[in-house]
Every structure is written in C-alpha cells, then in structure tokens.
Design a protein around this nucleic acid. Structure first.
Length: 417
DNA sequence: TCTGGGGTCCTAGGACCC
DNA sequence: TCTGGGGTCCTAGGACCC
C-alpha cells in the first residue's frame, strides 16, 4: 500500500503562510519571467482563471477581482517543501520525495487505521506548517495518485481518499477520464480515443497488446497498476539522473553575443552543481539557443560537444559551453532562451581510467568541493565564475517578488508584541 | 511596449561508416 | 544500371511531469 500526500496549490499556499491576510482570497503565482499563471488559490480558480494562462491575457481580469499576484520564489518554496517533507518523515520511515510538493510513503499500521492516519497527516501538516494537503492511499502509485485526485476534486472539502479494495477503485475508474490517470496526457489520450478508450476504466480493462501499439512499455505498466498490481516501487533513494539540464528564458531578449555567453555560463555552473550533488562526471554536453517560437523567423540551433575526459569542473564545462554557444549564435536574431544539458554522465564510483589521459586532477576535485562548501554555507552564488557577469541585465523579470522570508536574513518576518 | 517555464526521457530521421 | 544491412552519432522535436 502506498500513500500520496500532495499540497493544494502549493506555491500559492506558500505565500499565504506569510500573508495570512490573503487566506480565503484569490492568489496567483506566475512562472519565471512572470510569463503565465502556474499556481492559483482555490478562490482564484473559482474566478475562472485558467491554469497556464499567459499573464498579459488576464491582466484586466486579475485587476478587476483584486487578485494578489506573486512572481515565483523558489528559495521560499524549497524551504517550505523541506519542512513539509520533514513533517511527513515523522509518519513513516519509508518515504519518496516525488516532487516539490508531493511525497509517497508506505502507511504504517493496520489497514483499518489508514483513514485515521490520512486525517492525522493532513491535520498535522496544517497545524505545524500551515499547509493544506490531500492524502490518497491505494495499493499502487498510480492508484494512489488517482485517490489523491479524488480527494481533492470529487469529495468536496474532505481531502482524504482511501482506495484499498477493488470495488472502491473500480468505482472511481469508471467515473474519471483517462487523462486523470498519471502518465496519460492529451496526445496519448487522442491516440487512445482511436481505440475507443475514453475513461480510466476503459484503459484498465484494455488489452495490453493492443494498447502497446499506441503507447510504450510505461503505458502497459500503468494498466497493471490500475488493476492494483504494483509495478512502480517506492524509490527511497532517487536514482541518479541520466541527463541534467539547466535552461532558462531571458528577462529581455538578447541580440548580442555577450549576454548569451554570460547566461550560458550561469546555466553551466548550475548544471555542474547538480552533477556534483549526485556525484557524477560529465562526458558530453548539449547546448541550445532559440528565438521566440511565437514570432516569425523562429531560429533554433543546438549542438553537442565532448569534454576531453569525464569531469565535474565548472571551469571546463563552462569553457566548452561558451565555445559551443559561440558556434550557434548568429547576429540579427533576438534570442529568447538558452540552455545546457549534461547528457552523457558517468558515476564517479565506476569511472574507467584512460591509459593515455590522466583525467580530472585531484586539485580540481578539491577546488570544486571547496566551492560547494562555501556556497552551501554562505548561500548560493557566493562564489562564481566572472564569466557569468555581475549585473546580469538579461536575468529573469520578477515584477511581483515577495520577500524571501525564510532564506534571507533581512527578509525575516517581524512579529510585533 | 511587451509579455508563453523548466526538467527529464524518448524517438524519428538523416548522415555517415563498415 | 540498380540494388543491398546494420550500427552509431547527431539534431530536432515529442511527450509527460510539476
């Protein structure tokens, strides 16, 4: 049995923790660069503000209803997420942090106590972290996701749903569209519609061999999981990533090479940091730049490049990323976005030594360890390469920033006696 | 005046090689 | 003159998740 806990409107709820005056009021959170809506409080949803709607299209609507608007504030969300996860670890030693606001855990205790357990989890999260949560419990991850979906949407206000018997989950499967199933989105749903599969129940009872023709092996697993047979286990130690990307849109479009070089340097450093965090080394990088796909003359280029030996040294990776992006850049285009991926990775533990090349020096490794230690202690970005630039005029727009209540000394909330 | 995210994995198709 | 397989690497883009 698996429980899935997920926070309602997580980003919006984070802002409400420090702005209790906004509880019960419409709140929206915008994506990076204030591009579009990525989170809405319940009240904002009730106003008919669609998810993923471009901000410029709904400015008037937001104003009319006096909706509170926030730029996204990832340091804040990351910190509150860690508090949620810490609280949940108190309930079970077996947990998997699935996303910033979702955790799978194996519910302890006998089956007849699970409903009480779910309520206790929900109430504790509210009491200790002021986070509103939904809890779903079922025999597989896919059904637990579905239970959570039901907890949030179909039994208004309860926020808890236990699907521990076939008759219970079958009742749900017959009543939700196939797109409510984890891993099935629009494109796959259209292909399934060609096989007359519309509801989750249609998928659960479909012939796996027939479905395999329009989907992949993951879809076959989904069918198994919908029938209560677990294929996906709790990943307590997240598997190492096979690719690590860092990509970002610019706050203002870049026509010159210099800002593109600075941006790609920052992204390279960020990707190298993630690489070191999983104790990996990179052999191949992938770099891309492109203009706005919404404008005519869309221009997009990408290229891969090889490092001389597996490395996690930010200087090596940055130098190669800059050299590569120079080859992609063309004057006369207004670039919107750039990114880098570390796409061929090796584990430090299983490194093959090259007879003719010494590989990364011990000095480099020690320097990287020192940089990471300083940045962990003094805050992200304390030590960085000059190649990233200092004033960063291309950095993302955030016109509706909230304070970093929990991660910056001068932003700590003041409580009056 | 302008404004459409970020991450990971997978696959199709072309180029090239043996 | 026309025809042939299989593997690898690369770029581009699809698909899904939050």
């Amino acid at each position: 049995m698996i429980a899935l806990v997920d926070i309602n409107s997580f980003y919006a709820s984070c802002h409400q923790v420090f702005r209790p005056d906004l509880r019960g009021k419409p709140v929206v959170v915008l994506s990076n660069n204030d591009g579009f809506v990525v989170a809405r409080s319940r009240e904002a949803k009730a106003l008919g503000i669609p998810d993923l709607e471009p901000f410029f299209k709904i400015g008037q609507l937001l104003k009319k209803h006096r909706v509170a608007i926030f730029s996204s504030n990832y340091p804040l969300y990351g910190d509150l997420s860690a508090r949620v996860m810490d609280t949940l670890r108190g309930f079970s030693p077996n947990v998997e942090v699935y996303s910033i606001d979702e955790m799978f855990l194996s519910p302890p205790g006998p089956r007849e106590q699970w409903e009480d357990l779910a309520w206790e989890i929900k109430n504790t999260l509210w009491r200790q972290v002021r986070m509103p949560a939904g809890v779903g419990i079922a025999p597989t991850k896919t059904l637990a996701k579905l239970a959570n979906h039901v907890a949030k949407r179909h039994r208004q206000g309860t926020g808890v749903c236990i699907l521990d018997q076939p008759d219970k989950w079958q009742w749900v499967l017959r009543r939700v569209p196939v797109t409510a199933v984890w891993g099935v989105a629009g494109r796959m749903a259209r292909r399934l519609a060609g096989l007359r599969i519309h509801s989750a129940w249609d998928l659960a009872t479909a012939n796996a061999k027939v479905v395999r023709r329009v989907g992949n092996v993951n879809l076959e697993r989904t069918i198994e999981e919908l029938n209560g047979r677990a294929c996906l286990s709790l990943e307590e130690l997240p598997p190492a990533k096979q690719q690590i990307y860092c990509t970002r849109s610019f706050g203002r479009k870049a026509t010159e090479l210099q800002p593109v070089l600075e941006a790609i340097s920052l992204y390279a450093a960020r990707a190298a940091e993630k690489l070191r965090a999983q104790r990996g080394l990179a052999l191949t990088i992938h770099v891309f730049i492109h203009t706005s796909p919404h404008q005519p003359d869309f221009f997009s280029r990408s290229a891969t490049a090889q490092l001389p030996y597996p490395t996690d040294d930010v200087r090596r990776i940055t130098a190669l990323a800059r050299e590569t992006v120079k080859g992609l850049y063309r004057p006369g285009h207004a670039f919107l976005k750039a990114g880098i991926g570390l796409i061929e990775l090796v584990d430090r533990q299983h490194l093959q030594f090259d007879l003719f090349h010494p590989g990364q020096s011990e000095r480099s490794t020690r320097l990287m360890t020192a940089i990471d230690a300083v940045n962990r202690r003094q805050g992200k970005g304390t030590l960085f390469l000059g190649a990233q630039g200092v004033s960063k005029p291309w950095y993302m727009r955030q016109h509706f920033s909230s304070p970093q209540y929990t991660t910056r000394w001068q932003d700590i909330p003041v409580v009056f006696a």
